[in-house]
């Protein structure tokens, strides 16, 4: 019994130490950033990200560091990743506008990215899931009532139909949100990145993309990432020329 208590205390203590060390790292990285040592700040934030803190704050701060290091493509990647968590954050929206002004040809399209994210995450994904779970439980209760209180069946059926209708709406909404999170996106980080016809450096170059260009990932092979363009053209970009979430 004593051993068990000791083990539990040890585990709790270890977790506390790990958390406090991450907190120290976080605070240190803010100091580094404040002292314009963006490289160190970035390495600390990337460490924290690796330790499992994949959230709005860390992605946002990494984006800020990359911006300061003039790596605009990577900054865009992390800022757009933060959009998933908090699409209405005013700081994030401001930073994205600055990035888009610096990077991309068509300003309106990029404003649209923010608007789309705001619509898509108007209700945060975990809230939508919770709503769905609650609605599902209500549906089960209504079914039980329908079975046992047959005389009130009309009233219960109306409620049940309404609940199922809302479940369907929220489920589709949730699927769109989840798909958006799971979609792999790439962003070009090199000033000019070549797009090859096949995953081979000696192959024909079909396009050259500018830094900050964003597209979906359609697969990967060795050192290359496959992507598709609007006209149906498929091309391969070297991994070193882009950033993406594996």
């Amino acid at each position: 019994m004593k051993f068990k208590i000791f083990l539990m205390l040890f585990i709790l203590f270890s977790i506390n130490i790990i958390n406090s060390s991450i907190n120290i790292k976080f605070n240190d990285s803010i100091k580094y950033y404040n002292n314009s040592d963006y490289k160190n700040a970035l390495s600390y934030y990337l460490d924290i990200l690796k330790s499992g803190y994949d959230n709005f704050e860390i992605n946002y701060n990494i984006g800020c560091c990359y911006y300061k290091l003039n790596e605009i493509g990577k900054a865009r990647f992390y800022f757009e990743r933060s959009l998933i968590y908090k699409p209405f954050d005013s700081d994030l929206n401001h930073n994205l506008k600055v990035i888009y002004n610096k990077l991309v040809k068509n300003q309106d399209n990029n404003e649209q990215i923010i608007i789309n994210s705001r619509i898509l995450y108007l209700i945060p994904i975990n809230v939508v899931i919770l709503i769905n779970i609650i609605l599902s439980i209500i549906a089960v209760i209504l079914l039980t009532l329908l079975y046992n209180f047959y005389s009130y069946r009309k009233l219960i059926l109306i409620f049940l139909a309404t609940v199922i209708f809302f479940i369907l709406i929220f489920t589709f909404y949730n699927i769109f949100q989840y798909k958006n999170i799971k979609d792999q996106k790439l962003i070009i980080t090199k000033k000019n990145a070549n797009v090859y016809l096949t995953p081979n450096e000696n192959e024909t170059i079909i396009l050259t993309l500018e830094e900050g260009y964003s597209n979906k990932v359609y697969g990967e092979l060795n050192y290359f990432i496959k992507t598709k363009f609007n006209d149906g053209l498929t091309g391969w970009i070297k991994k070193e020329d882009l950033i993406y979430k594996p």
């Binding site: 803010i30 709005f56 860390i58 701060n61 911006y67």
Partner: peptide
């Protein structure tokens, strides 16, 4: 750009 976020989240 605006400053960093000060909470770890």
């Amino acid at each position: 750009i605006n400053f960093l976020k000060l909470n770890i989240g």
